[in-house]
């Protein structure tokens, strides 16, 4: 049986842990709100860009004879690059473990492919290092509030790798934010670019300056940057919500533990007092019968 002092020490330590996890939960909650807002704020740009691309695609298809832009070039998939987008810090539930498992099973199912990887986030770097897959580049210590400038260097490396023929496909693996309680690993093809089909059937004749082809070629790299940025935003929102939820359950577990320990503590204390009383009473009795 634990002594009173030991139990008291446990209670104090668990209470302190609960305070810490509670604080982490609040921090994650506020960061989560900001991450969700920036994901929302980034939407108009994405929509406009998608629409411009589809419009251009249509007006170019008819007139352009030469080879398509290198970022659109379709090749037989032999070598692929997987960009694993994970968090820098842990304590966010099974988020990274799920991503890692997802990536591993993709690689195992496609043994015929030569897989290269790019690590985004410390957790991805650690995992990919363990798997022994070749890592072309790693990006760690991204801000909690990523900006498009965080996405640009990554997008650039991927485009260069693709254009030089180092890889035939580029996939992004990231935690898709479904809602605060749920995130799941998701894989998206980044390159070659798949241009979304037009949404409206109404066709507007635009004048393009300098020319449709040139605007189109300018637009494509921006589109890739934007796609990368979007997945990094998803990662941020997922990370903060996963952390908030797991810290909340940690706080709850700690508080429950404190309740249990307090109960034990009171029981032990009572028993000790009873025992002491019995001792005193027994001693007094013995003295009287002796005297």
């Amino acid at each position: 049986m634990a002594t009173i002092r030991e139990i008291r020490r446990r209670i104090r330590s668990v209470t302190n842990t609960a305070k810490i996890t509670r604080a982490m939960e609040m921090v994650a909650a506020s960061k989560m709100r900001r991450a969700q807002l920036s994901a929302l704020a980034a939407r108009p740009y994405a929509e406009k860009m998608r629409q411009m691309l589809s419009d251009l695609q249509e007006s170019i298809q008819s007139q352009r004879q030469e080879a398509p832009h290198p970022l659109l070039a379709q090749r037989e998939a032999e070598r692929v690059a997987i960009v694993l987008i994970s968090t820098d810090r842990g304590l966010c539930g099974g988020l990274n473990a799920n991503l890692n498992r997802f990536t591993a099973s993709f690689v195992l199912e496609h043994q015929d492919l030569e897989v290269k990887t790019v690590a985004v986030g410390r957790k991805a770097r650690d995992f990919l290092g363990r798997t022994g897959l070749p890592v072309i580049a790693e990006f760690t210590n991204l801000s909690d509030y990523p900006s498009i400038d965080d996405a640009r260097p990554l997008a650039r490396i991927l485009m260069e790798e693709y254009i030089s023929g180092g890889v035939d496909r580029v996939y992004l693996v990231f935690p898709l934010f479904i809602n605060t309680m749920a995130q799941r690993p998701e894989m998206r093809q980044l390159l070659p670019i798949e241009i979304p089909p037009r949404e409206s059937t109404m066709s507007v004749q635009y004048i393009y300056e300098p020319s449709p082809a040139e605007v189109f070629d300018d637009l494509l790299p921006r589109y890739v940057e934007r796609q990368v940025y979007e997945t990094i935003l998803e990662k941020s929102a997922s990370e903060q919500s996963a952390r908030m939820v797991s810290m909340r359950s940690a706080t709850e577990a700690a508080n429950e533990m404190v309740d249990d320990l307090t109960l034990t503590y009171n029981k032990v204390r009572q028993e000790t007092i009873t025992k002491e009383l019995l001792d005193i009473a027994g001693g007094a009795e013995a003295l009287r019968s002796a005297g």
Partner: peptide, 19 residues
């Protein structure tokens, strides 16, 4: 600042896209 020089857009401009 358009790719082909500075440009001004006034109301009733034709549909137009530039870098």
């Amino acid at each position: 600042p358009g790719a082909a020089g500075e440009l001004t857009v006034l109301p009733s401009h034709a549909s137009f896209i530039t870098s």
